[in-house]
Amino acid sequence: MMRSLIYLLIGIFFGITMFKSEAASWFRIYEMFKFDAFHMYGIIGTAVVLGVIIVQVIKRFKIKSFYGEPIEFQPKEKSVPRYLIGGFIFGLGWALAGACPGPMFTLVGAGYLPILIVIAGAIAGTWMYGIVRDKLPH
């Protein structure tokens, strides 16, 4: 119960951040792909620089989770085609819908209900991947 509350609070903080950063704005995504503003690059860049420091510190000092368990990082499976092709398809969708999987949910809460069509599409796309994935190069 306590843990669920913590996840909920982290999610709320994430949702507020996505909305207030304007990372959930279709316009910001368009502007990013056009290289017309630094805003989105600043956001992702700051998050990654701090993220690298956070991960290094956790590894170096073997920091444990609040529950005393070791914090583990799963290395990504080695491959080239799945990341480039999958990433390319994701990018096509990201630029068209203007929302990636986090902001999609933020926008439901913000009251933009047509985003539900995007979410339904994303679930269908995930489902389709599960069906055809054995036939795809990975």
């Binding site: 096509l92 990201w94 203007g98 796309g125």
Partner: peptide, 30 residues
């Protein structure tokens, strides 16, 4: 909108992650 969402869902799973899993978590772990 449905097509955009479809490609986001399909592509994210094919690539094994989206902006949060790859651009943030993955790059942070180099």
């Amino acid at each position: 909108l449905a097509l955009g969402g479809f490609m986001v869902g399909f592509g994210a799973r094919y690539a094994g992650g989206c902006t949060s899993g790859h651009a943030i978590s993955g790059l942070s772990n180099l």
